[in-house]
Design a protein around this nucleic acid. Sequence first.
DNA 1: GTGGTCTAGACCACT
DNA 2: GTGGTCTAGACCACC
Lengths: 128, 128, 128, 128
Amino acid sequence: MMKYEFDNNVPIYLQIIEEIKNKIVAGVLAPGQQLDSVRAMAAKFEVNPNTIQRALSELEQQHLVYSQRTRGRFVTEDTRMIKVLRHKMAVSEIKNAVERLKLLGFDSDEIEQIFRESLEEDISKSDH
Amino acid sequence: MMKYEFDNNVPIYLQIIEEIKNKIVAGVLAPGQQLDSVRAMAAKFEVNPNTIQRALSELEQQHLVYSQRTRGRFVTEDTRMIKVLRHKMAVSEIKNAVERLKLLGFDSDEIEQIFRESLEEDISKSDH
Amino acid sequence: MMKYEFDNNVPIYLQIIEEIKNKIVAGVLAPGQQLDSVRAMAAKFEVNPNTIQRALSELEQQHLVYSQRTRGRFVTEDTRMIKVLRHKMAVSEIKNAVERLKLLGFDSDEIEQIFRESLEEDISKSDH
Amino acid sequence: MMKYEFDNNVPIYLQIIEEIKNKIVAGVLAPGQQLDSVRAMAAKFEVNPNTIQRALSELEQQHLVYSQRTRGRFVTEDTRMIKVLRHKMAVSEIKNAVERLKLLGFDSDEIEQIFRESLEEDISKSDH
DNA sequence: GTGGTCTAGACCACT
DNA sequence: GTGGTCTAGACCACC
């Protein structure tokens, strides 16, 4: 058997980044909307303010949020950026799934067929 | 401040079940092949033997492994069962991905299109 | 008169980033060469290790250095990246000078003429 | 740990001299115009009056300002002096930039080419 | 020994 | 009150 390895060594700040990205892509955080303050988020996540700061400045470097020194932080108003992010996240989600299936010995044709089945079921579900 | 638990509340025994299922489906553990002993697995996973015990009996209930009192535990020789499992795992993998994307606001058409792109890239990659 | 403002509020970690970029561009740090460890640099700059860490991880995000967990950090071996950086730094150096001169009321023609004089003097200097 | 001083060892009085020269060259301070009093400037720069005194007498030695015992200090009316200063500042600005680039390993040809690019961009910008 | 993450707590500038 | 920077000191995984 293989080496033992249970997940969850993902750094907190990365998890927070993902959390916020999800909300931006899903529209829960709208373009231009103000984020909670560093200290407020630190309290909510029960985490040190520095950890939040790190997550947020990383998001800033990716141009997904911007900050105004004394006013606070805001979701980018550049909807193009958000669309790009949205697409990237979808691609990576799907690629990961495909990747894992290939490791289990599935080939592209099989994966495509199963994917097709999944979508069809979905459609019939939404017909109810 | 205390640590906030983000993910990782999946019980260990479920993670172990997944691990073993993966090996069976991928063929790393062949039909009829003997599994490591409970104590050996407990050592490898650095986990209490009871946890292993629980995982294995669950797999027995699902007829994916069977035990012979004195000899040990073995992967099922029923290849049909394995095929079914294989298919189920693929479906659930893909459904999960689709599900997460729908939560992010994607509709079926978008997902299909991105899926198509992913596969095409894969093909062009393997052409190199 | 204008607002009072003496320079030097530039964060230490940004100054360190510049320092290292300079060395990379000038070739003092060659592609693939190992950098001092975080702790060593912290001692050299008389600064907290976290500050060094921050500078270096920023450089890593810019793909100018890469790190290997247990071995240390290294200058990128991608000489293209270094060339790009080199060019960017030159452009920004010159743009800054031009910018400051424009604030002093110089127009492009004047600036070009003075620039030409500077270069000629330089050449005659290197003739000696 | 103590703080390491990176830049900012330029004496304050020199910074103030530069500030005033900039204003004179840019025309913010016109020929013959009266300067603020020492005390007023000391307040504005949040600096000891002696520091201002020193900066101003240096400027007097360079014939860029002159003082009338009881009335105060004034910008020189010798526009030729100002033109010379203006030129000198431009030259030194550019020479500094060139100098720094040479330290980074650029040769004159490269610098000229990049300078040319910068100016062209500037022109195309003003065309918009 | 290496890099990486996190906390606790401080100080700054800006409004 | 906001974000931003920095220190001091801790712990982890990896080899």
